[in-house]
Amino acid sequence: MRLFSGQRAWLLQRLTAVLLLVACLAGLAALIFTPGFGYAQWKAFFSDGHGATLTVVCYIAICLHAWVGARDIILDYVPATAPRLALLSLVAVLLLATSVRLALLLAAQFMR
């Protein structure tokens, strides 16, 4: 698997963008059209199996989208190999760390 693929990354960025757009619109619609939608409802949503799964899917999409975007910026602006690898690694670690944090938070909901 090539680290710097062309078409696969391009396609991934667009597919995740569509998924995230739909998720954003659905979330916005829930906020606007559900009266009294507040903390309790959000908590219930994340505690629900479907809600948690949807959140994880959306977060994976955000991570993939952000990875391709950040990678593009770094490839454009950081030509030297060492700082480029350092920055790419930093982005990867940040995205992985936030994913683990999210997974732990959601898991904690079900442990209670």
């Binding site: 693929s5 391009w10 454009d76």
Partner: peptide, 12 residues
């Protein structure tokens, strides 16, 4: 040849 992150996909 064109399916490459640099050759084609640097186009923004």
């Amino acid at each position: 040849y064109l399916d490459d992150v640099y050759r084609l996909y640097r186009c923004r």
